[in-house]
Design a protein around this nucleic acid. Structure first.
Length: 361
DNA sequence: AACCCGGGGGT
DNA sequence: ACCCCAGGGTT
């Protein structure tokens, strides 16, 4: 048996029953691939079901409001994925009459679709012979063939794609690609791979040399940056101020409360005398209703300490220019706006009229 | 080529 | 505390 026969033999016995494996609709496959980038199947599955129900066709997605698209993504992370999908849906309507392109180069040219996703869609939906190389495939290849180059670098990438092209079953690329990723995801796992009963046990370099733990070689990780976010929940009757995040930072296009940010922890006094506080309130005396404990919010690359201040401005206060750049929104309407997990968690526990995003189970 | 972008779950 | 995940865009 060759590589592909062993692999697909294993796949047919062990594959999971997943909704995107039952369709050839390139739009559904695209949605699933984007959701599953850097995201586990169990976490992405409810989002996938909700997303294609809310936006059943490319046109539905293209004509949706940005806030509605972001709301569907709320809590998933890497929000540029949602922005890029929205943009690409519009592009497909404009340049391809709403029909998903069927050529690899066309698919690859779309925003948010790189080499991996273009290969996945091409092979799954159109049975084109492009090998997928994701984290799973790299781990499987690294172990079986003893590739010690650190993944993420050009040399390693060339070796992985070269192997992929060589081993790919050209008569059935879609099944081969799904099989090798599934094999990495549930058999040749990062920790505790099931080497004692493996179809490649006779071929695997790492196993034969008793060096499974050394493959794939680890990449150097960056030290996360620490930040302190002080969010002001300003009570103005039954309303409060929010604004969409912009710029070149995390959580772009999600909404948040007026924010005082610092690279180090600030005391209550430091906040009350900060330039940012004065920018919002000037010298008027604001009533502080409550100050929450720090909420630690961990991202892969940042550690954010969030603190929520509930404050009330004296009635009849003239609103400073800084606050005029915000939207005044009723507490009961906060649910309509996509927010980060950190804000969602706080509001679910303490906010008025805010319920958890319905993301299934 | 290096850096940036979230969040969750496993160990 | 550390690991990893069906990666892609920007600089």
């Amino acid at each position: 048996m060759n590589f592909s026969e062993k692999l697909i033999g294993w796949f047919e016995k062990n594959k999971r029953d997943l909704p995107w494996r039952k369709t050839k609709n390139p739009y559904f496959i695209w949605v699933s691939e984007i959701i599953l980038q850097q995201t586990r199947v169990e976490q992405g599955l409810p989002y996938y079901k909700r997303f294609i129900k809310k936006f059943p066709t490319i046109k539905d997605l293209a004509t949706a409001r940005e806030d509605d698209v972001m709301k569907q993504w709320q809590g998933l992370g890497y929000y540029s994925r949602a922005r890029n999908m929205h943009c690409t849906a519009k592009e497909i309507c404009k340049s391809y009459k709403g029909k998903f392109p069927e050529k690899f180069e066309e698919i690859l040219s779309l925003k948010g679709i790189g080499k991996y996703t273009a290969s996945a869609i091409s092979s799954f939906a159109f049975n084109l012979p492009f090998p997928v190389v994701d984290g799973n495939v790299q781990r499987v290849f690294a172990r079986i063939f003893g590739i010690s180059d650190s993944s993420g670098f050009a040399v390693a990438e060339k070796k992985f794609y070269s192997l992929g092209h060589k081993l790919l079953d050209k008569t059935n690329p879609g099944t081969f690609n799904q099989a090798i990723m599934e094999f990495g995801a549930i058999h040749c796992t990062p920790l505790l791979p099931k080497c004692n009963h493996c179809v490649f046990s006779g071929d695997c370099f790492a196993l034969k040399t008793n060096r499974v733990k050394e493959f794939p070689s680890k990449k150097i990780k960056v030290k996360p940056r620490t930040r302190f976010f002080y969010y002001l929940i300003i009570k103005a009757g039954d309303s409060t101020f929010i604004k969409k995040r912009k710029g070149n930072d995390i959580w772009i296009d999600l909404y948040e409360f007026p924010l005082i940010e610092s690279a180090k922890a600030l005391s209550k006094n430091e906040i009350l005398h900060s330039a940012q506080w004065k920018n919002f309130f000037g010298n008027i005396s604001v009533k502080i209703i409550s100050i929450s404990k720090y909420q630690k919010h961990i991202l892969s690359h940042q550690l954010i300490n969030g603190q929520f201040w509930e404050v009330e401005m004296p009635s009849g206060t003239k609103i400073k220019q800084a606050l005029k750049t915000f939207q005044l929104v009723k507490f009961t309407n906060l649910n309509k706006f996509p927010v980060s997990r950190m804000i969602e968690k706080y509001m679910v526990e303490n906010g008025e009229g805010f319920t958890k995003n319905n993301r299934g189970k």
